[in-house]
Simulated assay, not measured.
Amino acid sequence: MSVTPNQWRRVRTSVPVVLGRLLDLVEDAPPDRAATAHWTVADTMAHLCGVAAMGLSLVRGAPPDLPVPGLLDLRRRTTVDTISVMNAEVLRHFTERRLPVLADRLRADVEEVLRAVGETGPEHEVSWLGGARLPVTGLLAHLLNELNIHSWDIARALGRRWIVDPADAALFVDLFLVDMTRRSYGRLLDRDAPARPGRISVNFRHPFGPEVTLALVDGRVSVEPPDPRPDVRLSFDPATFTLMLFGRVHRVRAVLARKLSVGGRRPWLLPVFLRTMRMPS
């Protein structure tokens, strides 16, 4: 098994805890308050409802309970660079913006997701965006990260502070990012630019799990045994790292705060690696 019993227990425990904090946060929030450059608080909650609904559909093996024409085909064709298109389509057709209604739906769907994955077990695999292969542990880690990232957005809009537990953020790195790469990320990282020839190895190190090496070889990323002399060595606080990956924290700020350190034989190759191993921001 690629997931430990502690990770399996933690991800199922953390999702409802973070959800509860989010629901407390939005209970008296103004729905029209801008949470991001393009989304209000209500839009952000509707987006999270869409994430939970699609996750539940994957675990159940049924179409998502969302009024979006052609959503299954759109999900299959989606890449990192077109996730915004899919998100926009979901928000365009899923028009509910009443916060109490959205909160009730999100709570109910997350409860169903947790119940469903409890029945399947941690190694049950689903076909995710772009044909990526993902175990349900990774699906939960992604849901947990979405709850944290967008709660951070809402809290900032309300003038409040949102704390991301670094042990929870580590689950996103280990169970989603690394495990999906190990299995297959399908077309998720496809891009129009020509593939860079050669090999770049990057070691990822954080306090909550073993060091992992990801290697970019001729345009494809794979998980390799730990490289004793990697091109790039990343040591990081997982909470800061995930916020940085999704454009909420600048890389320079993370380095200056000593939440991210970059070393290795050829650390200047990190931006090249991240142009392929990227996240939507």
Rank of each mutant, 00 (worst) to 15 (best):
P67H: 03
A167T: 10
H150D: 12
V85Q: 06
T78W: 01
V136N: 12
A155G: 07
R77H: 10
L158A: 07
L140K: 05
E96R: 02
T78K: 00
L66G: 06
L99D: 07
R107H: 14
R133H: 10
N148R: 05
I163T: 15
R161L: 08
L99N: 12
G118K: 06
R60S: 14
D109S: 06
P100S: 11
G121E: 14
R92L: 05
E119P: 04
A108Y: 00
D165R: 15
L91Q: 08
I149W: 01
P135T: 14
G159A: 12
D104S: 15
G159C: 09
G70C: 02
G159E: 06
R107W: 03
R92G: 02
P67G: 03
M86P: 01
R75F: 02
A103T: 15
G61D: 12
P166T: 06
E125W: 02
R97P: 07
I154E: 08
S84I: 01
E111D: 15
P122H: 14
A155H: 10
E146I: 05
D73F: 01
A167D: 14
T95I: 04
V164L: 13
L106E: 09
G118W: 05
N145H: 13
T79F: 00
D65S: 12
R97Y: 08
T95V: 14
R156C: 10
A116M: 01
A108S: 15
D104M: 08
H93Q: 06
A88L: 03
L147K: 04
A132Y: 04
G159N: 13
G61E: 07
A157V: 12
S84V: 06
L144A: 10
P122S: 05
E119N: 04
V117S: 09
A88M: 01
E96N: 02
I83S: 10
I83D: 05
S151I: 12
G118I: 09
D104E: 15
L158Q: 11
P63K: 00
T79G: 09
I154C: 11
P63V: 00
H124K: 09
H93G: 04
G138W: 04
S84E: 09
T79Q: 05
A157F: 07
G138H: 03
F94C: 04
V117R: 09
L106D: 11
L74S: 09
W128T: 02
R97N: 11
L139G: 14
P64T: 05
E111K: 05
L140A: 11
L74H: 01
